[in-house]
Amino acid sequence: MVKVALRRPRPNFGHVSLFLVALLVGFLVVTQLRGQLAAESASGRSQLSDARLLADLIEANNRLRTEITKAEQELAALKGNSRVDVDTLVTELNRLKAINGLLEVSGPGVEVEILGNPEPFEMLDLVNELRNAGAEAIAIGNPQTMVRLVYRSGIGGGRGWILVDGILLSGPYYIRAIGSPDTILKTLERRGGLLALLRYTHPDWVVTVTPADRITLPVYPNQLSFKYARLMQ
C-alpha cells in the first residue's frame, strides 16, 4: 500500500505577499479599464448630446428667422396703409390658439404605444424627448381619452395610474405627437435612447412607435386661467 503523505504547503511569507501584490495589480488594472470605459461611454454620450445641442440651436435660429420674416411683412403692411389687416391678425390668433392647445390640430407625426405600467416620471421623460425631437403638439391618453398637453400640464399619479392635469388615465397608454415623423422616430429609437432604456428596464413591456401621415389631437379640456400672474408693466 502506498501511503501518500498529504503535505500541507508550508506558509511562505513571500508567496502570500506576492498574492497580495498581484491582487493589487489586478485591482489597479480593472479600475483603470473601468475608468476608460466610463470615459469612453461619457464622451460618446456627450458627442451625442453635443450634436443635439447644435441641432437645437440651428432649429431655434431658423424658427426665429421665420418669426422675423412674418413680423417684417406685417410691419411693412402696417406702415403702408396704417390699417391693421384683420386677416393677418386672425391668422396669428389662430396659430397661437393651436400652439396653446385651444384648437383641434392635425398633421403628420407619431403614435407611441406603451403596453406596460409606466411611472409618471417615465411619461414625463417621454414627453420631454418628444418636445426635444421637435414635436409641435402632444397628447397623452388611452383608447378612451386623449388629453392635449399645454405649457402648464403636469403629470402625476403612480405606477400604473397616470394623472394628467387632474384627469386619471389607465393603460394601455398612447402618446401622440405632431411633427416630423422621421425626426421623432429617429430620436426616440436611437441607440441608447429613451426607448432603448425603457425596454431594457422593463423587458415585459411592449413599447412601439408608429409614424402616421395624419394624427388629430383634441382641444385641451380644462380652463386656462390666471389667478396670480399679472402682465409685467
Partner: peptide, 24 residues
Amino acid sequence: LSGLLAELISQQVLAGTVGLTGPG
C-alpha cells in the same frame, strides 16, 4: 379691432411671449 387685439394678447400670455409678475 380692440376685441381682436385683446384676444391676441391673452393668447400671447398663454404662449409665454409676454413677461408676467406675481406671488410665487
